[in-house]
Write a protein that binds this DNA or RNA. Structure first.
Length: 271
DNA sequence: ATGGGCACCTGGCTGC
DNA sequence: TGCAGCCAGGTGCCCA
């Protein structure tokens, strides 16, 4: 999916259009998401007002009066705002009907997305409680990254992809951040110096923020709440550019596989 | 505790 | 045209 920039772009769209509105109904068309959607959820959320729309890592949180809906977009999910009620199309999994007349619609071809509801503190929810600090907040800094990498034999790319260590960074932005920091994705995490960690933290932030400003990256399925794609793809430095010249030095960009995922890097810029 | 691999699912593209 | 094979923004879980 959707990595942090796409989720944050979605959050902003939903906040703009749905915060303060009241839920009229939840229509679940297909319960078979990553985990079966709780059949009691429609009755629980109906009639509640959406107080706020938040994000934790790649999860969207709809804070209601008496609980919180926890939504994940998976690999191929998107959440759109539609004016009025429109007919269900392929892969539309659920609709949140608002009293204003608008519809919040979740579409997810691969059904890796998820939807939960909790009346407890969402931070303590099983899916959220072990997540690393937010990458755009102060807790994610050079000290933190240096500390957690000291005994890690795994490659730094794998550490960036591990949600218990670093959140929000997925396959695209892991490659992008490492390129910006001039660090090889294969480098053992514990081989990063303090200066490397400081540079990588800045690079992660810069990559995520730049993508947020462009409305995220659309490779295939992702669209923002207005139905438009994100425009960051054309500004990617390295992702999906194997065989093409590095934008900085002209060397041929390489693709390797790490943890069954593609990694892109420049063999001469990144050490 | 850490790391590696698998699983979940649909669809688009490539090459024979 | 058809079909097999590979690839795709994630992440929980099981096993060594």
């Amino acid at each position: 999916m959707p990595e942090l920039p796409e989720v944050e772009s979605t959050r902003r769209g939903i906040e703009r259009e749905a915060a303060g509105k009241r839920i009229q109904a939840l229509h679940i068309h297909d319960h078979r998401l990553r985990w079966p959607v709780d059949r009691h959820m429609p009755a629980e959320v109906s009639g509640q007002q959406i107080i706020a729309v938040e994000r934790r890592a790649k999860y969207l949180l709809l804070r209601l009066e008496r609980g919180t809906m926890i939504l994940h977009l998976g690999m191929s999910g998107s959440l759109r705002i539609l004016p009025g009620r429109s007919p269900r199309l392929k892969h539309d999994q659920f609709d949140l009907l608002l009293e204003s007349g608008d519809t919040l619609r979740f579409n997810d071809p691969r059904r890796f997305g998820s939807l939960h509801y909790t009346s407890e503190d969402p931070a303590q929810h099983k899916l959220l409680r072990s997540l690393a600090p937010e990458p755009l907040e102060p807790g994610f800094d050079a000290d933190y990254l240096h500390r957690i990498t000291r005994k890690r034999r795994a490659a730094i790319k794998q550490v960036l992809m591990n949600g218990r260590l670093v959140t929000g960074v997925g396959n695209i932005y892991a490659s992008e951040a490492l390129f910006r920091a001039r660090i090889s994705p294969r480098r053992g995490a514990r081989r990063l110096s303090r200066a490397d960690c400081a540079r990588l933290v800045r690079s992660v932030r810069a990559a995520l923020n730049a993508a947020i400003r462009a409305g995220g990256t659309t490779l295939r399925d992702y669209v923002g709440t207005d139905g438009n794609p994100g425009y960051f793809r054309q500004r990617l430095y390295i992702y999906e550019r194997a065989g093409r010249p590095c934008r900085v030095c002209g060397s041929e960009v390489r693709r390797i596989t790490q943890g069954q995922r593609s990694t892109y890097y420049c063999p001469s810029c990144q050490v």
